[in-house]
């Protein structure tokens, strides 16, 4: 009896291209040692505290206030960033004007400029004697060392996320649909709100979520302008730094876990939005 050779079941689909073992192994090793193992250390530390331990930290008045400020201000900043981000993306994609390319490149400035540099620059601009801070102070608005300062810094770092998520989709809109809508007698406003905007909503929400998540975790560009007064303008990441410098690793891990938990929920929301968008519109 001749046994027919059964095809061997393999982890990866067979291919003539060499180097899977070494590249895959190296990838997993680096990922494990640099990203997963250290993050697992955080999980171990946090689970050592237990849910009640984390709850105790979260309900500490100073921590609760810092979390409220981080998440609250970031939500407002992300709203402003995604609103203006949409406008900027629209203007950059649809209109032609001198200097458009330069303006487009400038959108990425917050990605390229180190956060500490942005931080001291914003602090000097919005200080009560600064270029922008002085006129605002005369109007009775104090920006630096208040939550408004945190808001300004968060808009700064969130803006490119908001612009860059919607920009490619605006570029892909089929102009013929708009023209059809116009030919059928719709006003420009009606065409925009009923035809153009609805498919863009998922991208705008994704941009909002990215800007929000970035704002919550941001440290460098905020601490200089915020002034860091406990209960007034102290953000959660700064409180982690303070706890670490006091060797309160448990407290720091608890705050980080709460922040990661909420960020994870935000990411999950993005993925759900994108999945829904793929079903509804056929693209992300």
């Amino acid at each position: 009896m001749v046994e027919t050779p059964r095809p061997r079941r393999t982890f990866r689909r067979p291919s003539v291209i060499p180097g899977f073992g070494i590249s895959f192994g190296y990838t997993l090793t680096c990922l494990g040692l640099i990203v997963l193992l250290p993050l697992a250390g955080l999980v171990v530390k946090a689970s050592g505290l237990g849910l009640s331990g984390i709850w105790d930290v979260a309900t500490d008045p100073r921590v609760a206030s810092a979390l409220r400020i981080s998440f609250g201000v970031s939500a407002i900043a992300a709203l402003v960033a995604s609103t203006f981000g949409f406008l900027v993306a629209w203007v950059l994609t649809r209109y032609r004007f001198p200097g458009r390319k330069l303006v487009d490149a400038a959108v990425d400035l917050p990605f390229a400029l180190p956060t500490a540099v942005a931080g001291i620059a914003l602090a000097s601009l919005y200080a009560p004697d600064g270029l922008v801070g002085a006129p605002l102070a005369r109007l009775g608005i104090q920006v630096a060392y208040t939550p408004i300062g945190i808001f300004i810094a968060m808009v700064f770092i969130g803006l490119p996320f908001a612009v860059r998520t919607v920009q490619p989709l605006i570029a892909e809109i089929d102009k013929e649909i708009e023209e059809a809508s116009a030919t059928l007698g719709a006003t420009r406003i009606a065409t925009l709100t009923k035809v153009v905007l609805p498919p863009l909503i998922p991208a705008v929400l994704t941009g909002f979520a990215l800007a929000f998540a970035r704002g919550v975790g941001e440290y460098g560009s905020i601490i200089f302008i915020a002034g860091n007064l406990p209960y007034v303008s102290e953000i959660a990441p700064l409180l982690i730094v303070i706890k670490l410098s006091e060797f309160d690793y448990g407290g720091a891990a608890a705050i980080a876990t709460i922040m990661l938990g909420i960020s994870f929920l935000t990411l999950l929301a993005i993925n759900l939005i994108q999945a829904w968008s793929r079903r509804r519109f056929g693209y992300v």
Binding site: L31, V35, G41, G217, P237, L244, A253, L260, S263, L267
Partner: peptide
């Protein structure tokens, strides 16, 4: 998983090494 570090706050990125290697 490779993208994960982008969604972790910079402060937490430093902190995880303190939890491992700190005194």
């Amino acid at each position: 998983l490779i993208d994960l570090p982008f969604s972790v706050s910079p402060v937490v990125s430093g902190m995880i090494y303190v939890l491992l290697f700190g005194s």
